[in-house]
């Protein structure tokens, strides 16, 4: 299985992934990134902070960036707007 690295860029800086994770393919890597964003944001939300200004950079074993996933991509966002009723 190929190894993917998940570097996190967000409000508290850059967290490099030095170890990487062995996953089936790039689709699995993408699912891992989305899952991880949800996991990190839900913990921050419990502390009362909702900061979606960040992204995960999925990088392959040759240090080639495969895809950057912005945090908002992991969510269906419904923000309060003017009500019609």
């Amino acid at each position: 299985m190929p190894r993917y690295f998940f570097h996190v860029f967000n409000g508290d800086g850059f967290t490099p992934d030095e170890e990487g994770i062995d996953l089936e393919d790039q689709a699995s890597a993408q699912r891992m990134a989305l899952d991880s964003i949800r996991s990190m944001i839900s913990e921050e939300a419990r502390k009362g902070v909702l900061d979606l200004d960040g992204y995960i950079d999925i990088v392959d074993g040759g240090a080639q960036s495969l895809r950057k996933i912005p945090f908002p991509e992991a969510f269906v966002l419904r923000l309060p707007g003017p009500r019609s009723d």
Binding site: E19, S36, S39
Partner: peptide, 22 residues
């Protein structure tokens, strides 16, 4: 352990685990 296994102890994804370790 690797970070995936540590994450499985902590109930977090390995990426989240890595951030906590940082």
């Amino acid at each position: 352990l690797n970070q995936s296994e540590l994450g499985e102890c902590l109930g977090m994804t390995p990426v989240h685990t890595n951030r906590v370790l940082r």
